[in-house]
């Protein structure tokens, strides 16, 4: 009896094989668009897809580094500050002025750059006025340094700088500029 089923299956198979299918141009057009899509995918491999993200991350990282470097003292300055900070411990004992006691130990002043601006010059002036009270003589190197820092104000500064105390004291006093408010006129009469 199974023969009948086989005959039926063969009949169907024969009909399918002999049937004709007509090719239409639209079939190929659909195929072509599919191939174009595939080629588009191929042309942008995985690394190229992530390239934009990598570049963006790189840009963010670079700008963060630049910003960090701009806002923080460089390593050389830090090393100097640390070295001087170690000397500060011994220098603090010798400092007699009461204002020096509340100076933070680890604040660093990048005067070299910042004195080019007005508000920094004001701070520098305040600093120098403070210095006048406790320094009798100023070493030549500090003198030259300050000259370099504020050329415009040098005549004024020169008259105020008479101390020749150690570099340590100068640095210690420099530390106050960030944490303290800018003094009003008359405040600096010490």
């Amino acid at each position: 009896m199974k023969q009948n089923n086989h005959l039926f299956d063969d009949f169907l198979k024969g009909q399918v094989e002999e049937a004709e299918v007509t090719f239409k141009e639209e079939y190929w057009q659909k195929m072509e668009s599919l191939l174009d899509q595939e080629e588009g995918k191929k042309s942008s491999p995985w690394w190229r897809k992530g390239l934009g993200i990598v570049l963006a991350l790189l840009a963010i990282g670079t700008s963060a580094l630049v910003y960090k470097k701009a806002t923080q003292p460089n390593s050389q300055e830090q090393a100097i500050a640390v070295a001087q900070g170690q000397n500060l411990d011994s220098g603090l004992d010798t400092l007699q002025n009461s204002q020096a006691e509340d100076i933070p130990n680890k604040i660093h002043l990048s005067l070299k750059v910042k004195t080019q601006q007005k508000h920094h010059k004001k701070k520098l002036l305040f600093l120098l006025r403070c210095l006048r009270c406790r320094m009798q003589k100023m070493p030549m190197e500090i003198h030259q340094h300050l000259l370099h820092l504020s050329r415009l104000d040098y005549p004024k500064l020169k008259s105020q700088f008479l101390s020749n105390k150690s570099m340590i004291r100068l640095r210690m006093l420099q530390l106050t500029w960030r944490s303290r408010p800018i003094p009003k006129a008359g405040f600096n009469r010490m």
């Binding site: 009896m1 199974k2 009948n4 089923n5 005959l7 039926f8 009949f11 009909q15 002999e18 049937a19 004709e20």
Partner: peptide, 13 residues
């Protein structure tokens, strides 16, 4: 099972 008598003619395409 089924029993068929086939007509020997080709179907339309």
């Amino acid at each position: 099972h089924f029993n068929f008598d086939f007509v020997e003619s080709k179907m339309d395409s």
